[in-house]
Design a protein around this nucleic acid. Structure first.
Lengths: 366, 366
DNA sequence: AAGCAGTGGGAATGCGCTTTCCCGACCGGC
DNA sequence: GCCGGTCGGGAAAGCGCATTCCCACTGCTT
């Protein structure tokens, strides 16, 4: 038994499909109350469920929002996803999920799939990348996105614009002040900390990571410090852990030499990497912040009970998701449609404010 | 400019829409290579993206999998979501996300929405509940699900069957041995631990929580122990934290009395609650496992670096998601269509194996 | 009382695609 | 050389719904 159709409902109610449609699915024209009631009863008794695909076809809009993340199990993304979901609910839409692992090629596929489903808008949460191997993929992604926008789709991307996308109508960027905040973090840390700094970063070319590294270095410079050494690794716990092992070896070597006590202050470009690094140090018998300080970025909720409490930069992840989604919702959203001033930033879809949060892991007294 | 259509492609290629359809979207009939090439070129040059809605309408199947969770930002659910996503990819389908906060009423709406979108299958990851206020919602949810199945939809639910669902064709339950595993955990703990046990549980009526509580009590009984007191609270970190505060007060009172050293062993029915409880104890100046032992359930990945390392029960969350999704994929999946033996369990969609994992937080020497 | 706008309902068209059915061409076998 | 049998392509009928256009009818005005 296939699901019952509007036509069946109409027949049972003794009206035309047009009328049934008008009463069951919001239309400007409201049929008479008696008829409406009859139709509603018929629908009820048949267990009628409108076919959203057919509706979508007819009105060419699907009520779908596409969300692209690297990995939905990563707390960073799942927090954003929660915000997206919430905003989608406000707009009475559903969210379609795509996880890509971070490659532009897969992201392009995801965009194409969303376009195929005629998603009303797309939110790209995953960080942009311009690693050498990605140039072709990026170009394709940009082309796919441009096409999607040209066809009336709206897209919001968190962090950085897609490389090469020509920002047509309906393309929003939610600016995340990674660089600035990382700079502030560096400044704050430099106040109390007189030892050396080391950065554990993601692979080169990953914008989020690069911005945070650059910002941190700038902050260090403003504070009159030497630039920090940068250890690059994968952008997840494992990457942090491995870099942590390297650093642990180095710290232990220095300690056994005796003499200077220039404790290391480690900045991992995200919390998950920071936790990985901390685990590595601990596995090597080092303690935080006694033997080294460590700071992260994001202020992941699940990690807030971690001990020693992790110094980090609070990012309103959920709100980022909400803002990005809302930006794609209102047709009147600002997009950079003015060619003049194209040197300026795109009109931000919303202002994201983060906050440096110093906790135990970087306390100097230990 | 709206997206280009199959008809346009066909016209450009100088063939009929039927032929264009055959070459561009997998059909049994393969047109000649020269024609195929012409069509492909035309499609390419027009930037043709097939309209999945129209395809879905025509073949009445959407390539969509609906996933229902309480909260996508909860690591328990996001881990399952990752598995679902992965399995969906295998089936070349996309996942539609719905978060419900746990109420059957909202779950019913989500099912209806999925049904409207003609999702091929639905995976319900959220725990079932039979709290008093939910009976009506449960009935409606069951009715909606039954209708969905009757119309050819396939559903998999993690943990417990939906209360009142009459298991028609296509209804799968992924059994999670919560009770058994909680029992094993109790047994293991009882070996080394001779103090009292306390359980921090979720609200009464939440199946997952109730099963784990029941199992734990059984395990205790088998070990010849007194049943544990049960503190009920919300099923999240806050719930654990509040219960933890209560327990902390109690422990401190006992400690100041001096005398007996019957240390408490706390079992929180999930890791997130356990972390909350641990945070509360710590906030009250107590240490784990020195002043109290604590164990959780789920073995959430992000929490594995928590110190003291949390004793818990490892659940293959990601695989649970995969298995549930796969169960809905193959049309030949086992469903309980035999009325005889209806006293037996439904044919499990896959066997989930967990593992008791004892770590530092319940070490007796402290 | 005749003409009018306004109202409530139905017929029909189209959204973009799949698929069945049909038809012409081309093949080999007797 | 004629016929049954493919094979490759097109015409057309939906899939389930929204919506435009049209018509019959009501309740007014002049």
């Amino acid at each position: 038994m296939a699901a019952s159709t509007l036509t069946e409902v109409a027949r049972l109610a003794g009206v035309s499909p047009a009328t049934a449609s008008r009463v069951l699915n919001g239309s400007a024209r409201k049929p008479g109350p008696d008829i409406a009631e009859r139709v509603r009863q018929a629908a009820e008794s048949l267990g009628y469920v409108p076919n959203a695909q057919a509706q979508g076809l007819a009105k060419s809009s699907s009520g779908l929002i596409g969300l692209i993340v690297h990995d939905i199990a990563d707390p960073y993304f799942s927090a954003i996803a929660r915000g997206v979901q919430e905003a989608a609910r406000e707009q009475r839409k559903m969210v379609l999920l795509a996880t890509t692992g971070g490659g532009p090629a897969e992201e392009k596929e995801a965009v194409a799939a969303f376009a195929a489903r005629r998603a009303d808008s797309i939110v790209i949460a995953g960080s942009r990348s311009r690693r050498p191997g990605d140039t072709e993929g990026n170009a394709e992604l940009a082309a796919e996105l441009d096409r999607y926008c040209r066809n009336g789709g709206r897209v919001a991307v968190v962090g950085h614009p897609v490389v090469g996308a020509t920002a047509p109508e309906g393309y929003h960027v939610v600016q995340v002040p990674n660089q600035e905040l990382a700079g502030q973090l560096a400044t704050e840390l430099a106040k109390d900390w007189d030892g050396k700094f080391v950065i554990i970063g993601g692979p080169e070319g990953l914008f989020t990571s690069d911005d945070r590294i650059r910002g941190f270095q700038e902050g260090l410079e403003r504070a009159g410090r030497q630039p920090a050494e940068v250890l690059r690794n994968s952008f997840n716990r494992t990457g942090g852990f491995e870099a942590g092992l390297q650093l642990a070896a180095r710290i232990k070597a220095e300690q056994s030499e005796g003499g200077e006590h220039t404790k290391l202050c480690i900045f991992a470009v995200n919390d998950v990497m920071a936790i990985g690094a901390a685990a590595a140090l601990r596995a090597e018998g080092l303690r935080i912040p006694r033997d080294a300080a460590i700071a992260g970025f994001d202020d992941i909720e699940t990690l807030r009970d971690f001990r020693p409490a992790l110094s980090t930069v609070r990012l309103p992840l959920e709100e980022i998701g909400r803002i990005a989604t809302r930006a794609t919702g209102r047709p009147g959203g600002h997009s950079a449609d003015q060619d003049k001033d194209h040197d300026q930033e795109l009109e931000p879809a919303g202002t994201i404010r983060g906050e440096v949060t110093l906790r135990r892991s970087t306390e100097v007294a230990a």
